[in-house]
C-alpha cells in the first residue's frame, strides 16, 4: 500500500502518465482513500499548468549586456 510520501514522490510521473498500469492503480486507490493526497495532486497539476502558461506572458528583455554581446557577434560575423 502506497504511503502519502510515496504519492508525493510519484505525483509528477502520475500526471505525466509515466507510471506502469499497476503503479497507476495503486496510486488511484490511495487517492480514492486520502483527501490530503487528492488535494496535493490537484495542487501539483495546477502548478504545472501555471508554469506552462508562463512563456505566453513573459516579455523578452534586451539589456546592455545582451546588446554588447549582439554587437560583438555581429562584428565577428561581418569579418567572416
Amino acid at each position: 500500500m502506497l504511503k502519502c510520501r510515496d504519492i508525493e514522490a510519484m505525483a509528477s510521473d502520475y500526471l505525466d502518465k509515466d507510471l506502469s498500469f499497476q503503479q497507476r492503480m495503486a496510486f488511484k486507490l490511495h487517492l480514492f482513500l486520502c483527501h490530503n493526497c487528492r488535494n496535493h495532486v490537484r495542487q501539483l497539476k495546477t502548478t504545472i499548468l501555471s508554469i506552462r502558461q508562463l512563456p505566453a506572458t513573459h516579455a523578452v528583455i534586451v539589456d546592455d549586456k545582451m546588446k554588447a554581446l549582439a554587437k560583438h557577434l555581429q562584428e565577428n560575423a561581418s569579418k567572416q
Binding site: 504511503k3 510515496d6 490530503n36 490537484r42 495546477t46 506552462r52 502558461q53 508562463l54
Partner: peptide, 24 residues
C-alpha cells in the same frame, strides 16, 4: 512535510486560487 508513518503532517487544503489562469 511527512510524519514517521509517512503521512502528511498537516492537512492539505484546497487552494483558494485554484486555476492556472487565476494564478497567472
Amino acid at each position: 512535510r511527512f510524519n514517521h508513518k509517512d503521512h502528511w503532517r498537516e492537512q492539505v487544503s484546497q487552494w483558494d486560487i485554484d486555476t492556472p489562469e487565476a494564478i497567472i
